[in-house]
């Protein structure tokens, strides 16, 4: 299957091929997101479950007087959820969802550091051998001996469970 969502949004590399990124751990893997979309890193907050919502956005939290959804990448990637630890943090990012800038909290096991990533170190996710769905991953970035996963938030928020959004993508990019 062609990964349409990836074509829509590659990491916004700067002209010099670099990118400031915040790295964090989930389920033993290191993830990165462009630092520019990160609004805040929070300790865990009391969560309010939203009955009937898709599992990976099953709760909301009070973020400075705003009610924002809390997303769990583990669940989006089809992994079992995990108990919070003393290192668990919420990374608040601002992403565009269906044209509306939206604040979303991401559950992470641990926030590590801000790194400068290089485009030359990146490669598309391999078709096979990944434990996670590749269409939700933007690219992999080699960093020393480890590999950092750059998730595709847009695909994650669009794809998980709602057909309408992914259909819309296909309409915008017909396979000619």
């Amino acid at each position: 299957m062609m990964n349409l969502a990836t074509e829509l949004s590659t990491p916004p590399w700067r002209d010099d091929g670099e990118l400031e990124a915040l790295t964090f751990d989930i389920a033993g893997e290191t993830f990165a997101l462009e630092a520019a979309i990160v609004r805040e890193i929070l300790d865990l907050l009391p969560e309010t479950a939203v009955p009937g919502a898709r599992a990976f956005v099953g709760a909301v939290v009070n973020f400075r007087g705003k009610v924002i959804p809390l997303a769990d990448i583990r669940l989006a990637f089809g992994m079992p959820s995990a108990e919070a630890t003393i290192d668990s943090r919420i990374v608040v990012v601002e992403v565009e969802i269906e044209g509306t800038p939206t604040l979303v909290g991401l559950r992470t096991d641990k926030v590590t550091e801000v790194l400068t990533l290089r485009k030359s170190d990146s490669e598309p996710p391999p078709r096979v051998g990944m434990r996670w769905p590749t269409e939700l991953i933007e690219c992999l970035i080699k960093c020393g001996t480890s590999v950092i996963i750059f998730p595709d938030l847009r695909a994650i928020f669009a794809a998980n469970g709602r057909k309408t959004s992914s259909e819309a993508d296909i309409i915008r990019h017909p396979k000619s």
């Binding site: 939203v50 009937g52 956005v57 909301v60 009610v67 924002i68 959804p69 939206t102 604040l103 979303v104």
Partner: peptide, 15 residues
Amino acid sequence: SMSKLHDDVATFSGA
């Protein structure tokens, strides 16, 4: 208001 991520939850009109 709730975010677009919860558009599909009709039981609630807000928070």
